[in-house]
Design a protein around this nucleic acid. Sequence first.
DNA 1: CTGCGATTGTTGCCTTGACAACAATTGTCC
DNA 2: GGACAATTGTTGTCAAGGCAACAATCGCAG
Lengths: 145, 145
Amino acid sequence: MPIYDVKTFRSREAVGALVGLTRKAIIERLESELAPHGLSAAQSLVVLVLAQGMADTAAGACKLLSHDPGAMTRLLDRLQEKGLVRRVPGPDRRSARLELMPKGRRVYAEINAAQVKVLNGMLRGFSPAEARQLESFLKRMLANA
Amino acid sequence: MPIYDVKTFRSREAVGALVGLTRKAIIERLESELAPHGLSAAQSLVVLVLAQGMADTAAGACKLLSHDPGAMTRLLDRLQEKGLVRRVPGPDRRSARLELMPKGRRVYAEINAAQVKVLNGMLRGFSPAEARQLESFLKRMLANA
DNA sequence: CTGCGATTGTTGCCTTGACAACAATTGTCC
DNA sequence: GGACAATTGTTGTCAAGGCAACAATCGCAG
């Protein structure tokens, strides 16, 4: 059962444009929260992924965030310069294990707080059930991809 | 009533990351559909906005798509080179009225079809009511921004 | 009408993600 | 074990958006 029809389709009302605008609004607010640390949204996501143990290599982070490997190399370079992350030789000699430095763990706490603050702000007026339903919708769209 | 809590927050499950991934998936599929025309997703959105009469100046399109004015100038240059759009002197001498060329109108039909196809594909399994609810959720988030 | 702030578009500069080519390493199939 | 494909990370190059500075024009307060 198709949702949209060519004849009645109005782009600005559709999920495509709305998702794009929503993402931009989230990033804008998140980066403004993180400005004191000079972190981009993408950088903060990587720190987050490492801190929560969801990945410990560049490739792992790339898959999780569907981020470009080339961009990831340079992103990690910057995180390393900032003293948040370091590359440690791991079992696989092609890659390096990514390890959070103490400063990285401290910053992680603030990234976490910033994300929670921004998302709660944009979900103002949502009931917990609605928020979970929104998450579920988005996951279903991703599963269709 | 806050949705997320600092202690239990898991980034990858949250709306922020999901919105980002969903957007990337939509763009990927849309650009692959539009590849024959060599159009980017951003370019196609501008053509769409012009064709549906939602804007007829660069500033209008910028506001609607929350796009950077500098980037918009160059984007329009490219659309003009492709023969899809032209700048016509308008009443306001600062700006130019944007007009779709015949080729632009033809391409618009295909952009429209591509968007409908991609979105319907990613909304597979959604009931019309669910899709409208998803739209509504996203609009509410944007209204909070 | 005049002056001044706001709007509009353009340009230059910077950052960053996408893509392709590549080298090193790993895993697999025979 | 050895050939070969797949994985991993890096680099260079390109395209595109964000930001700041600017000029032209507009609109409004006085």
